[in-house]
Amino acid sequence: MQFFGGTEISPSLPASTASGNNGHMMYVFNRNGVCLLYREWNRPLHTLNQQQDHKLMFGLLFSLKSLTAKMDPTTPDKANLGVPQLPGQGCSFHSFRTNTYKLTFMESPSGIKIILVTHPRTGDLRESLKYIYNLYVEYVVKNPLYTPGTPIRCELFNTTLDQYVRSIS
């Protein structure tokens, strides 16, 4: 894993540790907005109940995606804002950063959305999300006891994931 060393955002923030433990939480959604997985490693503040929190996150991504596609200066013909797009149509964002956290987002053409919230000074995590997608394939999709489209209850996936996220710097 490469470390890109982002620019200093707020001097008061604790430095991200090269040894890992930079993950705050992670969501996995499918196309129908079902939260397949929610993992939390470091989140001191909860303001909403879990269901509302998931809906808010999904809604944020959905709107942000259609906004970024609308703002795209390179594509000439675009539909109006809010008009449903075909999957894969329009551009999308892969991360944003605030002064307290960084959110990295990946969506597969099959509609699986993986969201990882980390320390703001973590580097480019796109490859990490791809790796997590591969973990999802190995531990969840290939699990015959898992019914597609339902929340993931797979201990092996959770432990592997925890281990991997702890190593992200």
Binding site: G88, S108, Y133, V141
Partner: peptide, 16 residues
Amino acid sequence: IRLIDEFLAKSNVSRC
């Protein structure tokens, strides 16, 4: 419906 995810994860095909 399961195979598609393995296909996408391993082939790096993004969109057609």
